[in-house]
Amino acid sequence: MNTISNERLAELAAAVLDRTAFISAEAVEDAAPVPLDRVARIAYTGPHHGHVTLHTTHGFLAVLAANLLGVDQDDANAGAYVDDALGELANMIGGSVLADLGGESCAFAIGLPELMSTGTPTPEGAAGVCCLDCEGHPLVVAWRPAPAAANAA
């Protein structure tokens, strides 16, 4: 199975934020000590299956939504789109991970993003985890391929 290092995962996530929303992100050792209370997951199938999970804050999603909409970060309209921003970010980072895993002959199929109930990011079961500082806002991305037995089922 192809794999993605923590560093590559951080590069892919940072590239998504830069290209889409002009947000600068850099990898850090640990997420800022604030509750990462917004969580999204996107599953995939193909040569193996698994999912990519994002953990972040409402504040970061409001910034992301504002940048995507091209409005000021304190614009009230941006606050209405934080769930959409989280789902779309999961979609784009998940898509970038699959493109990287699959290459030119990519055989992975991506699912639809799911917004999850609040959960603390844990590295258990994750083949790749990265913490990003996104202009002062935290983002944790975890890649979890399913165990080989589950893939074989």
């Binding site: 193909g46 979609n91 784009m92 998940g94 898509g95 970038s96 699959l98 493109a99 699959g102 030119e104 002959s105 990519c106 055989a107 992975f108 199929a109 991506i110």
Partner: peptide, 9 residues
Amino acid sequence: VSTESNAER
């Protein structure tokens, strides 16, 4: 305009 990368699709 999509994240789709599946080559067959």
